[in-house]
C-alpha cells in the first residue's frame, strides 16, 4: 500500500514536470504543444548518449540534455509556431503534430527503433528503508527534483520581471504588449523553460523506466497533457496536483485492478472530473460573454 503510494507519487512527479511544460505553453500561447512529449524523448537520448557513449559524469550530461532541449524548444517555436501566431488553433495543433512526427522520425533515423537500456544516472544516491518500506533512489530524486522545480517556478513567475511578464501575457496579450512587454520574447522564453523541464523529465522518466525508444515520449506526453487538463490547464499548481494525482491513480489501478486496464481507468477518472468540474480541479471559471 505504502510502496504503491510512493511509486505513484514518484511517477506522478514525472507527469507533473511534463505537465508544467504543457500548461505554461498553453497558458501563454493558447496552443496544445503535441511535440512536447517528443522533446522528453530527445532529452532522454541526449543524456543517454553523453553518459553511455562519451562517458560523461551525470551532472554535465543532464545539463547538456537541458541545454539541447531548451535550444530545440526555441528553434521549433521560431520556425514552426511563430509564423502561425495569428492562425486558427487547429492549424497550430496540426503543425505541432507535424513537429512531433518530425522529431520521432529523426530520432528513428539517428538511434534506430531498437530500445536502448538507459543507465541509472542516480545510482550514486542510496535507496532508503523507512519503517520496512523501501524507497527507490529514483523516487527520492524525482520527488526532490519536482519540489525544487515547483518552488523555483513559483518564485520565478511571482517575483521576477520576466515571470510577471509571462503572467501578464497569458492574461491579456494585447494589454501586455501595450505595457511594453516583448510578447514574442516572452513566448520564446516559455517554450525554452518548458523544453528544459521536458529534458529533466526525460532523464527522470528513463531512470525509473530504463528503456529508451523514439516513441518513449508519446504516451507519457499524452498522460501528462491529461494531467494538465485534470488540474486545470494554464494553472501551474494545477499541473502539479493533476500530475501527482494521475500518477497515484495509475499505480493503484495497476496494483489493485488490472495492468492492462490502468490507462483506461486513468482516462475514465479524468472524464468524470471534467464532467463534474469542466475546467479541471484548479482551473479558472471563465464566464461566456454575449
Amino acid at each position: 500500500m505504502l510502496t504503491n503510494l510512493i511509486n505513484g507519487i514518484s511517477l506522478g512527479s514525472v507527469y507533473a514536470i511534463i505537465a508544467l511544460g504543457y500548461t505554461m505553453v498553453y497558458g501563454i500561447a493558447k496552443m496544445l504543444n503535441f511535440a512536447h512529449g517528443d522533446v522528453i524523448m530527445i532529452g532522454g537520448y541526449m543524456a543517454f548518449c553523453t553518459t553511455s557513449y562519451l562517458g560523461w559524469p551525470v551532472v554535465p550530461s543532464i545539463l547538456f540534455a537541458v541545454v539541447v532541449c531548451t535550444i530545440l524548444g526555441i528553434v521549433v517555436e521560431k520556425l514552426a509556431y511563430k509564423p502561425l501566431r495569428n492562425a486558427t488553433s487547429l492549424a497550430v495543433l496540426i503543425t505541432a503534430i507535424g513537429v512531433s512526427y518530425f522529431l520521432q522520425n529523426a530520432a528513428l533515423l539517428i538511434w534506430t527503433s531498437n530500445p536502448k537500456a538507459f543507465p541509472n544516472l542516480v545510482a550514486s544516491i542510496p535507496s532508503i528503508e523507512l519503517g520496512g518500506v523501501r524507497i527507490a533512489n529514483t523516487a527520492i530524486v524525482t520527488v526532490i527534483a519536482n519540489l525544487i522545480i515547483m518552488v523555483a517556478l513559483t518564485l520565478f513567475t511571482n517575483r521576477t520581471k520576466m515571470g510577471k511578464a509571462m503572467k501578464a501575457v497569458s492574461e491579456d496579450k494585447g494589454a501586455a504588449q501595450l505595457m511594453g512587454i516583448n510578447v514574442d520574447r516572452t513566448i520564446s522564453l516559455t517554450f525554452a523553460i518548458g523544453s528544459g523541464l521536458a529534458a529533466i523529465a526525460g532523464v527522470l522518466l528513463c531512470s525509473a523506466y530504463p528503456t529508451l525508444m523514439p516513441t518513449t515520449g508519446a504516451m507519457p506526453g499524452i498522460k501528462a497533457f491529461t494531467a494538465a487538463v485534470f488540474g486545470g490547464i494554464g494553472s501551474i499548481p494545477g499541473a502539479m496536483l493533476g500530475g501527482i494525482l494521475l500518477g497515484i491513480i495509475e499505480i493503484f489501478a495497476k496494483a489493485y485492478v488490472s495492468t492492462q486496464l490502468s490507462d483506461a481507468i486513468v482516462f475514465a477518472v479524468l472524464i468524470i472530473v471534467l464532467i463534474v468540474k469542466p475546467t479541471g480541479l484548479l482551473g479558472k471559471k471563465v464566464s461566456e460573454k454575449v
Binding site: L84, T95, G98, F102
Partner: peptide, 17 residues
C-alpha cells in the same frame, strides 16, 4: 516519414501564414 512530416509542416505554414 521524415519527408511526410516536413511536407505537413510546410503546407500548414504556407496555407496559414
Amino acid at each position: 516519414m521524415l519527408v511526410y512530416a516536413i511536407v505537413l509542416i510546410l503546407v500548414m505554414l504556407i496555407t496559414n501564414n
